[in-house]
Simulated assay, not measured.
Amino acid sequence: MHSISLGFFSISATQLLMLGSLLLAAGVGHIVGKPKKVGVLDLLLGMTLAGLVVARIVFVAIWFPLYLASPLSMLDIRDGGFHMWAGVVTGLAFGAWRCWKRQELVAPLTAGLLAAFVVGDMAGASHISAMSKEADLPAYNLNTLDGKPTTLAKLAHGKPVIVNLWASWCPPCRREMPALAEAQRRHKDMVFIFVNQDTDVAAAKQFISDTHLVIDNVVLDPAGQIPQAVGSSALPTTLFYDGGKHMVDLHIGGFSIASFSDALDKFTETLKKNEHAK
């Protein structure tokens, strides 16, 4: 599974892995530092917070022009806009600085981070292997808004595909839809497919009508076949498939214009690398 849902709350497998790694690092650090009565949980939390703050600042700086239309959105971290390597470097630098001031932290922190890295790497590899069977474009029969049968592959026309799983009752789905609609208008080299999860077809039609969105390739999946096939019950979920209809990326949660632009850049770069590798 790519995500786990608890009522209206969803957490991705990546977030679970990060949380588990943090707890493991704290546990191993506690064991190693116990003889000297040294714990590293506070330090790990400080490293995580420092890393997240800098990762967000760097991401916003990179995409600053896209945030200008709505400056307060810079603070809305729900769009998933973080620069990973800036965060990692900052977190490690913060940890090194604290260890320099308190030498007794070096051994427990190092042991904790090494344990988290090794176990996290193994768990990540296992997750990727387990999910490989869900990596192909699902072949279920779906219906268009006017009731015509179709499939994702039929709509794709052999092009790279971006599949967005959404519902009219889902707030982050509603927030991100204008950004996705604009991207669909601009990127004709890719196919965008919006797979609606409403059990009431009228609700999906009403949402599109009320918001005056101009979007193509809206299909209905009231039985939730596609989320089950890809292993993600969270909404929204956005899936990126190459021209061979193999999943190359997945994003759980809503996008902003900036974070979706970043995801599109990474997707395009992946497509280029795959093309050169042939």
Rank of each mutant, 00 (worst) to 15 (best):
P236L: 08
R102F: 14
K148A: 15
F94G: 09
L19F: 15
F8E: 12
V218D: 02
G253F: 13
L142I: 05
A183S: 06
S3F: 03
L41T: 10
K34E: 12
A130M: 07
L145Q: 09
L17M: 09
V214A: 02
F117P: 08
L165Q: 07
Q228R: 12
G95V: 04
L145A: 10
A26R: 01
V89W: 07
F267Q: 04
E182D: 01
A130C: 00
G147E: 11
K148E: 11
L6W: 04
G231M: 02
L239N: 06
L213G: 02
L109M: 13
G147Q: 14
W85V: 11
R175K: 13
P71T: 03
T151Y: 03
C99R: 10
T150F: 06
L45A: 10
F267S: 04
Y140I: 04
K272C: 03
L271T: 03
G20F: 07
D189K: 01
L113Y: 10
Q103K: 15
I226A: 06
D79Q: 05
V230C: 05
V219N: 02
I257V: 14
V54P: 01
F94P: 04
L180R: 04
D221L: 03
A13L: 06
L22V: 06
I215L: 02
S3C: 04
T48D: 07
G112R: 08
D79P: 02
D42G: 15
E182N: 04
G51K: 10
V54E: 05
A61Q: 10
S126P: 00
I215H: 00
M47R: 07
D200C: 00
H251A: 13
Q15P: 14
M47K: 05
G244M: 06
A125I: 00
F94R: 11
S70P: 00
P236Y: 08
R98K: 15
G33V: 06
L41S: 12
G7S: 06
L41K: 04
W97K: 11
L250F: 09
A125F: 06
L22A: 09
L23Q: 00
L213Y: 09
R186P: 00
S3N: 04
K273V: 14
M74G: 02
A93R: 03
K148Y: 07
I252G: 05
P138W: 01
S129Q: 14
S233L: 12
A25S: 06
K205F: 01
V38K: 13
L137T: 00
A181N: 00
M122Q: 12
C170F: 04
A139E: 08
P108A: 11
A111M: 14
D216T: 13
P236G: 06
V195T: 02
V191R: 09
N274I: 08
Q103V: 09
T211R: 12
K148G: 01
D42N: 15
H127V: 07
A86K: 10
L45K: 02
S10W: 09
V60I: 13
V106W: 15
P172T: 01
K266H: 11
T199D: 00
A234S: 11
G253S: 10
K154N: 05
W97M: 15
V106C: 13
I57S: 07
S70Y: 12
S5N: 08
L137C: 02
A55M: 07
K278C: 13
E275K: 15
T270L: 14
A181C: 02
T237C: 11
L41Y: 04
A167R: 03
V161Y: 05
S10G: 12
S126T: 11
L113R: 10
S168E: 13
I77L: 14
P222L: 01
N141Q: 14
S126A: 14
